[in-house]
Design a protein around this nucleic acid. Sequence first.
RNA 1: GGGCGUAUAGCUCAGUUGGUUAGAGCGCCACGUUGACAUCGUGGAGGUCACAGAUUCGAGUUCUGUUACGCCCACCA
Length: 885
Amino acid sequence: MSEYYQLPKAYIPADTEAKWYAWWENNHLFHGKPNPDKPAYSIVIPPPNVTGILHLGHILNNTLQDILIRHHKMMGYEVSWFPGTDHAGIATESKVEKTLRQKGEPGRDELGREKFIEKVWEWRKQYGGTIIRQLRKLGTACDWERERFTMDEGLSHAVRKVFVELYNKGYIYRGQRMINWCPVSRTALSDEEVIYKEVDGKFYHIKYPLVDGSGFLEVATTRPETMFGDTAVAVHPTDERYKHLIGKMVKLPLTDREIPIIADEHADPEKGSGCVKITPAHDPNDFAVGQRHNLAMINIMNADASLNDKAGAEFAGMDRFAAREKVVAELDKLGLLTKIEPIRHAVGFSERGDVPIETLISRQWFCNMKELAKPAIAAVREGKIKFYPERWAKTYFHWMENIQDWCISRQIWWGHRIPAWYNDDTGEVYVGMEPPTAPGNWRQEEDVLDTWFSSWLWPFSVMGWPEKTEELKYFYPTADLVTGPDIIFFWVARMIMAGCEFMKEIPFRNVYFTSIIRDEIGRKLSKSLGNSPDPLDVIDEYGADALRFSIIYIAPVGMDIRYSNERCELGRNFANKLWNVCRFRQMQGGPTEYYKSLDGLDKSALTADEQWIIAKVNDVVGSVNTSLKEFRFHTAAHDIYDLVWSNVCDWFVEAEKVQFRAGGEAKERALAVVDYILFKVLRLLHPFMPFITEELAHAMGYVAEDASIMNAEYPQYNEADAEGEKIVADVDNKFAMVTAGRALRSGCNIGDNKKVKFYIRAVNEEKLAFLNSQADSLKTLLNASEVEISLADYDRSQGAAPSALSNLGTIYLPLAGLIDVEAEKVKLEKQRVDYEKWIKSSEAKLSNERFLAKAPEQVVADAKAHLAELKEKLARVNELIDSLS
RNA sequence: GGGCGUAUAGCUCAGUUGGUUAGAGCGCCACGUUGACAUCGUGGAGGUCACAGAUUCGAGUUCUGUUACGCCCACCA
């Protein structure tokens, strides 16, 4: 790594980023290990799907985690960020299947279980690391030596152990229940994997003839094709219209079956005809009715949701939607279809297949979550775990307090195979960590577990659980979790339950929910819309630091982000600004010894501007630390941005050019102060922009060749630096006066490059002394040929001059008669009216007895001071008006 | 049906416990390359803080209601 060297004119990120990332990684700077001398700080990454490729959601999420990690590392914590990937059962299985199909190779069914799984592992070896490699481009300080995969042997062991424990406790059981079935993936899903969408459907009214020929019952349904599974028609027990029919039979059209009319409160007399068809095998409500009345359950569907032979020869094998059309047509032919109404209703879709799911009865494995939820609810209720933004706790409580049994079995192959064995001869079921040793004809359960059944153990399984490792002892519980609110049920809630159950300890203390990223017109980013930029392209174009900074800067708290690539210009420009201010510093001379501390420097010699910037930087140091503690990343980014651009570059460095020109001691002192604040700024910014800050810290000689800014101390608010606060107001006022002076120039169409004379009349002796001390700085900032400062009024005999007020005094731009007196009068008159208006409202407030009585003392004092100020300024405006007439 | 969020400048958004004349970036207008930076500088225009009430000495900020948009949850045929 090169030491102090001359920076090129523009920052080129690509080389810098590659160089530093390799250097950090090769020097194991991301690795944390149990260290009794330091407090621990750990984060587990939300493991991206092994099939995943990096998208902007990952960028935001991982940048935030990286900020936390680097901040804490610089604060003196022993940090470890546990990275890894998720095996993502259904997603990966279908991905590999698709790949095989594209290559024309034998697919899943041809290969059979073992060979197919081998293929998946091969695929994973070849492509599965993509997202992990991509994350490195972003600069993430992941502890790569601890990378895990949810199907690693250790993690699989943890999964089996948890399954067996919960089975032995009676929480996990196998049973026939209503589940959600995805006809595309051909597997059961959990309730959370069903996405409800509003769709336009049709409401079919069908007549079921009474067997005795005395008439019809009309039922209404959105799913006429399920009628083959009907085993009753229900009416409300108190419904007078149908009371006499209860117990009678109706003929089920298109079949040769007769089904009973039953009385059940599920039938709502207000709705439709008040009669409802009961299909216990395909509807959760009907299932309940069926249980109450001991009705038969007829499953009429195959795994792909085509109808089976229970639907009769004519319909067997038909797709469910084709069957619907045919059923309706047949009923119409028979005169049994009375009407079709349009209806808008919510239909459950499977996330993966994007087709409507089927609810049907199936034998699956379930986990009863009721008891697991209790301590997890308490942990959040009692504040042991905090959510940011806090409101997500409501969502969490609502779900947890109504938690349902979790369907954990999946009819796929890629995943943790359920550690249950059946003995078909005896009917025995064995559940254990290892296959049964008892003699007999045992066959293992074919199903695998829901992917989340391994993810929920992630915070401790990555640390080696169930072994009692040093890592667990030191790094568990983790500190913070950063994730999207969309997986609060899937993952966050379940991790809390798993932590409480198996570790007897919460898995993390804070959960920060990120925003969702949308495109510039508010649409969700998606591949199919083509509005999802590839972050690697963005990094190529703007740089990783620019992307990181921009996305944090524009991320509103707790709301969706509107993103477009152009917005990365903000970060790129900021990086360039930082680069150039450092470059400017270098052009003034070699490094000083004061970049770490101003100790040894004669503080009494500091200029007002120097005291001012030291205090301003110190303020921001304080607020950034506070913001980060409260997960207000966006505020921190704004504070640093404003500090660097406005205070450091626009004001301080410009003002300090006076000192550089002066040379000698003044220059030496200025360089010391610049080094001091620049190194602070670089450290402050490092968690946000790791690459450029590392580069600059080395180039400027602030960090030794073999060291990293990652290990430098994060700046903290300090009292010594706050001493300059006294002078801050005066310097602020000086800068305000400069702005006013420049506006006078601009108002007279005098270019910034033309040197002109200014006259300043100070408001009093004290301000006069201050202004005199700032003469050189004023001259430079105003680009003036001369600045005359005095207590005396402006000498009108030199010709009228446009003027502006400031708290320190009145600034004039003498133009030797070039001034448009009338225009100046109009301007001043307007000011006079404004001041009078403000004074009036201020006086009204101060004469209000209730204000004086009830407002805090300080507010009243401020108001009085403000009124005095307004009056003083009004007096000056009046003088100016008089002087023009 | 229940819950949550959002509404501030042309656009995207700040505005932490209520307290001077409401801010930034982008865009727009004018001027400017005085050797850090045109990925820049200087100055400027632009807002009845969605609407209606209430509380208060004082409301962009608190409360209630309304409207619009968005999200989540819910078995309604």
